[in-house]
Amino acid sequence: MDLATLQTAGRLARLTLNRPDSRNAMCIELLDALHACVDELSGRDDINVCVVMGAGRAFCAGMDLKELLEDPDNPRRLLTSIAELTIKMRDLPCATIATVNRAAIGGGCGLMCVCDFSITHEDAKIGYPEVDLGVCPAVVAPWLILRTGAGRARQILLQGGVMSGRRAHELGLITRLVESVDDLEDATGDMVERLVAAGPIALQATRAWLNELQPADLVEKVRKGAVISADVASGPEAQESLRKLYQGS
């Protein structure tokens, strides 16, 4: 079974995280599958919009923290992969919409913030609880700052925990809020309809120009963030905290 799938229909693409029994936690294999999908999509200038979604009961529970413990090389592998994935996603020619059902946590929230739009519902669980677990959200911080501004990003990342979809909307993490999870499909459909009808050249040119206006050192910072996150995740505080979480000792 593929842990991520890409389907296209006309000018629309759907990228699905497909590891529902682990709430789409990003393990190395899932990240590899996402890379393959995004590589395929990056060559498609006939697509206007890509909807990113999670199969099952969550958009994405974040990085697979259990994998961080399994091999001393894993923190670096996982975080490098997340960094390069987000860089590629921002460079796609098409617009991207994260449709967030129920939860986008940690790295999952990072994946959401790199998309142009994020739609969720009022009681979704959104946030970056890294500092509660001894890990560091450095790799996703540059994307969050672009979304909310540096002041709010500072408060969100230092405070940790998770917040409601409603609160995330107030802070600017979410671009469109709907009442319940059942409304997500319609709200996403409305936006897709508008974007699919747009001129593909105009859409691509606008998106490329907005990317050019980003800080010149953005890619460098995302990569440096991955190194910092990996270093913290490899350290004794994180390893001890994660072992307690998974082994109860």
């Binding site: 500092v131 450095a138 911080a141 540096a150 230092l158």
Partner: peptide, 24 residues
């Protein structure tokens, strides 16, 4: 709020703050 923040993992929090300082 400060008491809640003080309960977080210290090394992770310090690394996060230092990185945010560098970014902004």
């Amino acid at each position: 709020l400060a008491t809640d923040l003080a309960s977080k993992q210290r090394h992770a929090l310090a690394a996060t703050k230092r990185w945010l300082n560098e970014l902004d």
